[in-house]
Write a protein that binds this DNA or RNA. Structure first.
Lengths: 123, 123
DNA sequence: ACGATAATTCAACTATTTTGGAAATATCGA
DNA sequence: TCGATATTTCCAAAATAGTTGAATTATCGT
């Protein structure tokens, strides 16, 4: 993962429409959703959605597969993992314990035994 | 963390300049860097940098503190952790094992004992 | 083969973001 | 207090991104 690829991922998720697409597809894992259903779910014009899907696919955030005249899209979760690793690489050089958040984030300090630390907190 | 806040974070990291700022500050944790040094390091005009720093601070991605006539900026790693949790919440509903990447990413399956799983792989 | 359906591409248009210089604000050191 | 320094704010120009509808490509069902 280089800076260019990471930037492409963030560009993808920086539009309301594209963030909506990604969230929808994350929920729909591992089945995926065909383009038309995405458009209907998010109320976006087909050509506009197509534009966004292309951007996201090129960035590697989505995987696409043809099913007859449908195109089924899926989220690429592994890429997000890479991005987080990229962000926290070379972090906090030489300051032991000074960067807990980043360490947990990158999986270097594991949070074993903690109960669902990432659960969304209602609000 | 709601969708609006997550979107703001991604908007922040979707510009080359801002991604550069964040990476610089992650590396500089927990000391931080003053605005002028950020501008010098990234070769950005002061007024332009100021614009980006304001965006990032408003999104909560940066913390700022005044030191005389300097402003020292720091990265807020905890927010990134929240964002990842937000992204993977409600993921892969009812499909056991069908979403390993997301589970590892969100810390629900811990990767205890694995050796530095996030290390950047040379390329 | 033919009409209907799924999705994409294209081109023009609109909207938003980013930039950089000049001016403003505030702190520092002597 | 005064000049230098650090940073921000303001504003107009330049650059990018997003939307739309029409045309296009390809597959489906009959």
């Amino acid at each position: 993962m280089d800076e260019k690829a990471a930037l492409a991922v963030f560009e993808c998720l920086s539009s309301g429409v594209r963030l909506g697409v990604f969230r929808l597809l994350v929920k729909a894992e591992p089945v995926g959703v065909v383009a038309g259903d995405i458009a209907a779910a998010l109320d976006v014009a087909p050509s506009s959605l197509s534009f966004h899907l292309r951007t996201m696919t090129q960035a590697g955030l989505l995987r696409v597969e043809q099913e007859g005249r449908f195109l089924r899209y899926r989220a690429n979760l592994a890429l997000m993992t890479e991005v987080v690793g990229f962000l926290t690489a070379n972090c906090c050089s030489g300051v032991p314990g000074g960067c807990r958040d980043a360490d947990v984030l990158a999986g270097r300090i594991s949070d074993c035994g903690a109960s669902n630390p990432m659960q969304e907190s209602k609000a």
